[in-house]
Design a protein around this nucleic acid. Structure first.
Ligand SMILES: [Mn+2]
Ligand SMILES: [Mn+2]
Ligand SMILES: [Zn+2]
Ligand SMILES: [Zn+2]
Lengths: 135, 135
DNA sequence: TTTATAGTTTAGAATTATTATAAACTAGAT
DNA sequence: ATCTAGTTTATAATAATTCTAAACTATAAA
């Protein structure tokens, strides 16, 4: 994804392409592979080396804005820190209880042959599987 | 579950049946139905009305001890607060994005016809499905 | 182009959830 | 009854996140 595309992505979701947002978006989306992150890891990544500094408040604001816009998504965990994913396609996760690491499971690696009906008046938005691993 | 059984449950997991632990355990397990809670809701429930007071620190300690002992389990959410479940059987959840409520899905309401192999040297400890609902 | 303004960034304070500390207390063994 | 490791508690500390309000800026309008 090139800078032009990044700017369009931001504009298309009603977000002004500010210096900070473009910097963060390039860091998140100009990669070969999707990945998982926390605000803490993203903030470190963004603010390392000689690059222009972005405040922690802005990292929080931007992550929230990108989540609301659907550019990233929040991941289910049982931890006190929020995890996010640049892979917004429907997919599943392994959670390694020993290393505490989350890794993607390809969507077609899991098949469901029976899914419950949603309660009246509600629709299924998505379905996520988490497989916990142990030694 | 009667008081005697509660005391045994605590003893069997190496926990002394103190006044506070028994009070909390009775509140959690002497019910017809399992339920979901946070430390905050449990603390309110335990410390309301004329009952003996239990400190918040003890509620945290006890929830941690009960989780380690396998009497309750922590639930996957994408929130900053930890949720717990008195239903320790393998089961799944609906998560209502509008009301932000978690409800149980019976285990046999979900069937998986394909599950990925765990990475080398790891075993599958359990598998949880979360179905997000929207209006 | 300037100008106006709504949107954005920021440092720092505030809040919230959780964990740590260390002194007082107690269950249960002897 | 005495002893002691385990437990409880008030309170402090830490960690994650949200709030605040002043300074700044992207961009639309003049
Ligand atoms: Mn915390
Ligand atoms: Mn928080
Ligand atoms: Zn993922
Ligand atoms: Zn449940």
């Amino acid at each position: 994804m090139q800078k032009k595309a990044i700017v369009n992505k931001l504009r298309s979701s009603g977000l002004r392409p500010t210096k900070q947002r473009v910097l963060i978006a390039r860091n998140l989306f100009e990669r070969d592979k999707t990945f998982h992150f926390t605000v803490e890891t993203l903030n470190k990544e963004i603010n390392k080396k000689g690059s222009d500094k972005v405040s922690l408040a802005t990292v929080y604001n931007t992550v929230e804005a990108f989540t609301k816009a659907g550019h990233i998504k929040q991941i289910l965990t049982s931890k006190s820190k929020s995890y996010f994913d640049t892979n917004i396609k429907s997919h599943h996760h392994f959670y390694d209880e020993d290393s505490k690491e989350l890794t993607d499971i390809n969507y077609n690696q899991v098949k469901l042959s029976k899914v419950p009906h949603p309660p009246k008046g509600k629709k299924i938005k998505n379905l996520e599987v988490v497989i916990r691993l142990q030694k």
